[in-house]
């Protein structure tokens, strides 16, 4: 066999080089931070080299993580320690702890950058904490196993999903009272508002679909279902959702189906399925939304996806059972 490349292959190699060279230069290196539920650590990934640069020990069973508005602080739900830990993202040193109520799992930060709304999975309440004074402001009774949390873009409404009650609970942030409840499919895991605040997207892990709810009427207007060839419908268990700012895409992590669904956020049609690692749960976009990162619990890795081509670029080994993910600009 000849050692020189056949002409077609050479052409492809040349093209590939050309494409690489033509790709727009990435602005500034960003940092991907992942919580590892079974390792009690955070993995810090450099998004240029796509490799883990640091592993930070944290409280027990870290799950939900979120950044302050300027990205300087990272909040970590240490579920088994019943607290929220705060880390300085420039040093990755712990700077404080906040009371959270029992078993905090997910939380959402108010646009005021102060109030955290925390779902206490074992206690059927949502706890509201002021991150400046580090005091509990209030607790609101919700359904069984509260999980998903989201604050509306205008900051007036916070929603919580309860996994066993199967509802979205709408809470008025001024009075901290329940204003409404919407029944959705089984085991609602995650909720996110559209950028204009008009729609709420809710994933139902056991129901196998994503409900799109009109925030005016608080009624579901669409239920998105998924079908992947060769994968039993039982294994399609939607969890994390990410919406792009331009309103073009919704990405949905499909759990043990090991795929991320790409949805046209206007027509609610499923456009594509991207194969990632095993049991994909949560998602994060980088700041210019050119990359999507997924946490794959069972395979213990993070998949980086190129948003332009909707293709996975690399799998990055992290700790055991990666759960939450954020990208720090």
């Amino acid at each position: 066999m000849s050692k020189t490349l056949p002409p077609a292959a050479a052409l492809f190699a040349g093209l590939a080089g050309l494409l690489t060279a033509a790709a727009p230069p990435r602005a500034v290196a960003e940092t991907v931070i992942v919580s590892n539920e079974r390792d009690n650590t955070l993995s810090v990934i450099d998004d240029e080299s796509l490799s883990v640069t640091q592993t930070v020990p944290v409280g027990r069973r870290p799950r939900g993580i979120t950044l302050s508005a300027d990205g300087s602080r990272l909040y970590v739900c240490a579920s088994d320690d019943d607290r929220i830990e705060i880390y300085d993202t420039s040093t990755m040193k712990k700077t404080g702890e906040i009371p959270s109520g029992v078993d905090p799992e997910q939380f959402a930060l108010h646009p005021d950058d102060r109030k955290l709304y925390i779902a206490n999975e074992n206690d059927d309440v949502v706890t509201v904490v002021d991150t400046d004074s580090r005091h509990v402001i209030g607790q609101i009774d919700v359904g069984v196993e509260p999980e998903g949390m989201a604050v509306s873009p205008d900051g007036r409404v916070v929603v919580n999903t309860s996994e066993t009650t199967n509802m979205v609970h709408w809470i008025d942030t001024a009075s901290l009272t329940l204003i409404d409840n919407t029944l959705v499919d089984q085991r609602p895991r995650y909720a996110v508002f559209s950028r204009d605040g008009k729609r709420l997207w809710v994933s139902s892990e056991v129901g196998g679909g994503v409900s799109v709810i009109d925030t005016g009427s608080r009624e579901p207007i669409e239920t998105i279902r998924f079908k992947i060839g060769g994968i039993s419908s039982d294994r399609i268990q939607p969890v994390g959702i990410k919406l792009t700012r331009d309103g073009r895409y919704a990405f949905v992590a499909l759990g043990p189906a090991n795929h991320v669904a790409v949805i046209d956020a206007e027509t609610y049609k499923v456009l594509d399925y991207i194969l990632v690692g095993r049991r994909v749960w949560h998602l994060a976009l980088n700041s210019d939304e050119t990359r999507l990162y997924t946490t794959n619990g069972v395979s213990g890795d993070v998949t980086a996806i190129d948003v332009a081509t909707l293709k996975p670029i690399k799998s990055i080994r992290v700790g055991r059972f990666p759960w939450g993910v954020v990208v720090k600009p």
Partner: peptide, 24 residues
Amino acid sequence: RHWRWPALAETVKVPCRRPPLRLV
């Protein structure tokens, strides 16, 4: 059974108000 953060003693426990029913 009903764990509350100690600091709650000096804050407000917001009671659950009956919400408007969505079911008929």
